[in-house]
């Protein structure tokens, strides 16, 4: 699992952390059934608040990417096959947008529109 966070960015730290874990699940660095680092240890290693880590884990649990079990911590849930397909589609989408000179913010607002 590779995590990169930057406190000077406007994106909240828990979202950056969740994005890093999500990316690690999608690119296979984290595999199904693997146990994540306990929240306190991860917080210590990144020098951030433990509640920030727990909030990131909570987001990923709601997305179905993690299972949280009392006493066992956070475990990568077995649904990443679909996410991997999605990751491929997103790569294609971004490539396509770059090809047509569509900016990141424009692409994001297009996606937001499509969700409505």
């Amino acid at each position: 699992m590779l995590i990169r966070i930057d406190p000077t960015l406007s994106t909240p730290l828990f979202e950056q952390l969740a994005a890093g874990i999500r990316a690690s699940v999608i690119d296979g660095r984290l595999t199904v059934g693997e146990r994540l680092l306990p929240a306190r240890e991860l917080a210590g290693a990144l020098d951030i608040n433990v509640h920030t880590v727990l909030r990131a884990y909570q987001i990923l649990r709601e997305e179905g990417l993690l299972d949280m079990r009392p006493g066992r911590g956070a475990i990568v849930a077995g649904r990443i096959g679909q996410h991997a397909a999605l990751a491929g589609a997103i790569h294609d989408l971004v490539d396509e947008a770059k090809l047509r000179n569509v900016s990141e913010s424009a692409l994001l607002s297009l996606i937001r529109e499509a969700y409505k």
Binding site: M1, L2, I3, R4, D6, R29, L37, L42, L46, D47
Partner: peptide, 9 residues
């Protein structure tokens, strides 16, 4: 200002 961390088993 970026912090990096890697872990694996």
């Amino acid at each position: 200002s970026e912090r990096v961390f890697w872990t694996g088993t």
